[in-house]
Amino acid sequence: MSLHELRLLPWTTPEGNPCYLSADSDHSALSRLADDLEAAQLDSGAQVLAGARAVLADPGAGERAVRFALTRAVESLDDALRVAVSRGRRIPARHR
């Protein structure tokens, strides 16, 4: 990453605005923290997906269970899209 590129971080401000990092190294403490959080978000998303599939496969699942599964799935999709955008921006132009 060059000095002039900003990394989209996997968290937002309390107001919901995006956070960015300007760093001269992908190995800074904050970059590593962001990498770890992205990995945790993707792992959590996989678990949410498995749970949502189980709820959808259960014909007896009630509205609360379906709404909870959908709410968590939306949160996880939001996280995954943020990770994808952040990582996509860091791919050198010649590889896009």
Rank of each mutant, 00 (worst) to 15 (best):
D35E: 04
L33F: 15
T12D: 15
C19P: 03
R82D: 08
V48C: 00
S31C: 14
H95G: 06
Q41Y: 01
L81V: 15
V74D: 12
R87W: 07
S25Q: 05
D35G: 04
V48F: 01
A93V: 11
Q47L: 12
S76F: 04
F68G: 00
A84D: 12
Y20A: 08
V85C: 11
A40E: 03
H27M: 13
P18Q: 14
E5Q: 15
R67L: 08
A34N: 05
S25L: 03
A54T: 06
A39V: 01
S31D: 13
R90W: 03
L49V: 00
A34E: 05
L3F: 12
S86I: 07
G60N: 14
S22L: 15
V48W: 00
S25N: 06
S31M: 12
D79T: 09
L49P: 02
D58H: 02
P14I: 10
R67V: 09
R32G: 00
S25I: 03
L8H: 03
T71S: 14
V66Q: 12
A46V: 04
Q47C: 06
L30N: 07
L42K: 06
E75Y: 03
L8G: 05
R87S: 07
T12M: 14
P10Q: 02
R64H: 12
L70T: 09
R96K: 11
L9G: 03
D36W: 04
G16R: 10
D36L: 01
A40G: 04
V85M: 11
A69R: 03
R94W: 12
L37I: 08
V74Q: 15
V48S: 04
G88R: 08
A84I: 10
A40P: 04
D24P: 05
L8Q: 10
D58V: 05
L37Q: 03
L9M: 10
V74H: 15
A73I: 10
A52Y: 01
R53I: 06
D79N: 15
S44E: 09
D78F: 07
F68W: 06
V83I: 08
L9Q: 02
C19G: 04
L21W: 13
P10W: 02
G60W: 08
L56E: 03
S44F: 01
I91F: 03
R90Q: 10
R53G: 03
A93E: 13
A34W: 06
R89P: 07
A23P: 06
A34Y: 07
S86H: 02
S76H: 01
T12L: 13
R87E: 13
F68V: 02
E15K: 14
